[in-house]
Amino acid sequence: MLGAGGGRGVISFCGIELAHPVVNASGTFDAIAARRVFGDALLEEFPFAAFVTKTVTVEPRQGNPPPRLWELAGGMINSIGLPNKGLAGFLRHDLPELADLPVPLVVNVMGFTREEVARLVETFAELDAVAALELNVSCPNVKTGLVMGADPGETAALLDVVRPRTTKPLILKLTPNTAAPADVAAAAEAHGADAVSLINTLRGMALDPDVRFQPSARPWLGGGTGGVSGPAVRAIALVQVHEVRARVRLPIVGMGGVQRGRHAADLLAAGADLVAVGTESFRDPRAGERVSRELREHAAKTALSRPPAVRA
């Protein structure tokens, strides 16, 4: 499932060849927008070994009303609300451009029912431009009321419907907003997922400072609550990757607060096979390339292809 990691030479992830082990976290880098802003330099010096799209849903979504961001100690809260053009819009407008990227394409999808997820997976299963699919299961199944990735039974039932629809690798994006992510990972492994990625953002909230101590006190974010990301969640990502690794043999994409090569090295030591950079790309659009380079430098210093696994 994985060749030589640690950033040297070509590595293999679910049968996909990657130049190095650093990818982007879904929803933290828009390759189409970045190409408009930075031009062809983006393609010539693409910062990630694979590109993971923002979440695609069946219907178009406008996203949440602003404000959508809140800066906090060592990170931020976002309440973006998964704006996207919907499946038809994505296929018509975005996929042709994304197919031109110099790295493998992973499409992240989310549905509000198992059938919606199945429809998305089935559609992308047919397309050569798509190397793998990532399932965003951080939303409730509107039929059961259970978050698809927060309950092992719900995750198993989803995969039973979705798995037969494609031979492409299926990466399940675990949510940290559940009592035992490792139980969900074990269900994912038993029901045919090819890999898991973690962590998604942690639910959080901020209150409007302009009306603090006033009867009109209210949440700051237009969506009410949001997801916490950045260095503030790094320790949580590390322990969850460690716990999931103890339970499953699946490849793991580890993410959460990675800013430097040493943070990526820690996630690899905890059991990740790839590392994703998310919020740090907001501060530095070349963060993925920088983290990959720093990881390579660490590896060269220690003459190890990847950090040794940490003991429990």
Binding site: P66, I80, P285
Partner: peptide, 27 residues
């Protein structure tokens, strides 16, 4: 002006309401 994390279209945080729906102010 709008609160903005990245400035290059990555974060989707800086939207403003227009006749075409929300648009990212940075783009």
């Amino acid at each position: 002006e709008a609160g903005m994390a990245c400035g290059y279209g990555a974060c989707f945080g800086c939207v403003v309401p227009t006749r075409d729906g929300y648009v990212r102010l940075c783009l």
